[in-house]
Design a protein around this nucleic acid. Structure first.
Lengths: 119, 119, 119, 119
DNA sequence: GTGGTCTAGACCACA
DNA sequence: GTGGTCTAGACCACA
């Protein structure tokens, strides 16, 4: 399901987290589908179950998966797909802009601030 | 309404000034709302009314409140406050942008959405 | 402005209805603002204008928008929206209270602060 | 510095987290003071360093401490003292109420919702 | 010295 | 079967 890059200097658990985040954001694994079990994935990747445990705990903390004790880990539906998350961010910016408009700000105020940043 | 920190080494009146500045900047107390009376606040905080008086005088000097003789102290709507709130909105937008950058978004994505809105 | 999910099995017009309901309820589009025109949205989403038409008709039937012939569609200010926003505010207050409960606060702490405010 | 309760059914690392949170909130340990090192605390409490590590990671995630690699863990200043956090919550409720007031809500709407909850 | 990661493996609760 | 916690201990980077 995922492949580790041993030339990558980051910790293994971080790689596992990142790989699964992408799979979930791209919709390859979807809402309520089951994640591989901690032990089975540990065997498949030839790494220690504790390392998978740590990665799954991080994915749960970030809201990508949820755990049912005794059953396994499942994909959460709270995380939107990539495009939806992008839209959501733009919508939140619209709300900020509307708040600012009431204080007398213009689009140019916001755009100016963005443009003076490094890309 | 405010809490003093007795481990803080600064003069009490400075603490009072700072706490109220935060409440005003955050919008918890808003334009033209009345400040607690000098006497009531002195009782509430168990400190001398002269100390409150000194704090209020400083808040007035810095443009955060204005005094109406015989009526009390009120929150002013000075340019400064407004500018700080505008700055905060822009900063929140920068945070949104940074979140988006991690998802592969560019400044143009945000600016585009602003520009397609009516002013 | 909105994103369709082609893996979603529901009809497209239903998705369009749902997405706009969320944007309206969240306040991203507000009272009396104009909806995108049927034709421009059809182009943007690469779907048939008739599908947008059907979605807008449903939004009007449910009271979210109103139509002005020859001008376009606009966000309405129906009682329903208002009630939902009020409900959301109360829910956010409940979350605040729960946060406080873990710090040892009681309902009375919150109620007291509300009551000492002018109406 | 802290004492574990072996009759407590919760995991040890959770107890460690909770004990330190209280020490920090009460101001017993203050801004920029150093936490006991992972290894020294492990010896002192006769538990495994990994368990302390887990507790410290959780305290860092919640913003109570920060880590300087090669130096140790230190108290963060982002967490207010207990009383200040309570005030902060009340202030956020005041902001919610003011938002609601603009939608026509009254204090009674908010108080009612609190009162219908179990304590 | 400090924290961070990882392995190998035990034991527990939940279902 | 599943995940959660914990131990014992190695090895690494940072200073």
């Amino acid at each position: 399901m995922i492949i580790l890059d041993y030339k990558d200097t980051r910790p293994i658990y971080e790689q596992v987290v990142e790989k699964f985040k992408l799979l979930i954001l791209k919709g390859v694994i979807q809402k309520d589908e089951q994640m591989p079990s901690v032990r089975s994935l540990a065997v498949e990747l030839s790494i220690n179950p504790n390392t998978i445990q740590k990665a799954y705990a991080e994915l749960e903390r970030q809201g990508y998966i949820y755990t049912v004790k005794g059953r396994g880990n499942f994909i959460s539906d709270s995380k939107n797909l990539l495009d939806e998350r992008k839209e959501e961010l733009k919508n939140r910016m619209v709300l900020l802009y509307k708040e600012g408009k009431e204080l007398g700000m213009t689009k140019a105020d916001f755009i100016g601030r963005l443009q003076e940043m490094e890309e």
